[in-house]
Design a protein around this nucleic acid. Structure first.
Lengths: 202, 202
DNA sequence: TGTACATCAGTGAACGCGCGTTCACTGATGTAC
DNA sequence: TGTACATCAGTGAACGCGCGTTCACTGATGTAC
């Protein structure tokens, strides 16, 4: 494996578990067994390396995730709204709560959603647009009465909840008095699913 | 005004518009017309200054906000669920979208909600617990059938949506094709309110 | 009332460190004639 | 087949900067006898 590939792999691991500012060029190159200058040689600068790492990771992850959603919902018969929403909610909630790394990745993604973000173009292209597309299709299959704008707003309401229940987990643990064990996670999935279905059905 | 007070005021302004890492001790002391060493002299270290600033700001803001909510909903007759939810949603959405500073403040608050945060204890004490208390009371007045746990989960669903529609505003602008002008903000308020009421009513 | 000492707000200069980046370089491989 | 040159991956050492913090200090105010 070339130095360039080694740096890319190690940078992915480090950036996505510790965050951009908490990883130095020296950390990466040292772990890759290469010289400090090699990041600038191969990737121009730290920021560009980050963007390349982010793009590669997000591209892989989104494709995987979209395929899982497609398989889970199926393409044959018309799915129920309950099935579609539960599939989305339980899929994302379980994925993001599966490990510390997944939680950290979510916090990086949500940071890239805010203005002044440094890789929002990549996030939109690799994840948000393709993800919205597949979700919009499936929600409309299950509930064709909704307008395009309404579907989009409902998708944002779903992700608003999912992101919050993951990101603010320690706050929510304190307000509810529950640890995030699998039983409570299932309670959360039920809650978000039911809340959302009713919200959509109107 | 003493140097200490001047530093506190200026640090509040700078930390809450630029974020902890983007403000240096030199920035603060220079703007306050004081010596670099004065932060350490009066507040021990940068982090402790930040925590004091954060506590003071959050305390003031929460009290104000809670009073506004109490006035808006009223204490006399039983309010409708629609009235309670709309009051919460429009209040927070308009407040957080009122200025760049308010948006930045929200992003600081949501960061403090995640694990590894440095001032989560202050956030819980000054804001989350008091805010949950007043919201729980009013939602239960309007809809007494809900269990305690259910009310708490619904509050999180509401804030999950509010936070997301503010934080991810540039992403949502791109997926919906709408700028955040007052007309679209009103559309968002209507959407979140209706989505939430149906979600709660079940 | 005067004196000696303690306390306190605030300062100026420097310390030590970690950071991203740059620069001149080496050594291997490819290519043209 | 041999030679001269270009290209490329990678290196070692240093540069310059900004950072939070420390330390010895000054000068004013308060306090005890």
């Amino acid at each position: 494996m070339s130095t360039k590939e080694k740096i890319l792999d190690i940078a992915e691991d480090m950036f996505l578990t510790k965050g951009y500012d908490n990883v130095s060029v020296r950390d990466i190159t040292h772990a890759a067994g290469a010289n400090v200058a090699s990041v600038n040689y191969h990737f121009n600068c730290k920021r560009d390396l980050y963007r390349e790492v982010f793009k590669r990771k997000l591209g892989r992850l989104s494709q995987e995730k979209i395929q899982k959603i497609r398989e889970d919902i199926g393409t044959e018969t018309t799915p129920t709204l309950e099935h579609v929403v539960r599939s989305i909610v339980s899929g994302f909630l379980n994925d993001f709560l599966a490990s510390k790394e997944a939680e950290k990745l979510l916090s990086i993604i949500t940071n890239e959603m805010s203005e002044n973000a440094t890789a929002q173009d990549i996030l939109m292209e690799e994840t948000i647009f393709p993800m919205h597309k597949v979700l919009r299709e499936n929600i409309r299959r299950a509930h064709p009465a909704l307008t395009d704008q309404k579907v989009t707003l409902c998708i944002s309401s779903i992700f608003g909840q999912i992101f919050h229940f993951v990101r603010a987990r320690s706050v929510i643990s304190q307000t509810t008095g529950h640890e995030y064990d699998q039983e409570f996670i299932n309670t959360l999935i039920d809650h978000i699913t039911e809340f959302t279905i009713r919200g959509i059905r109107g």
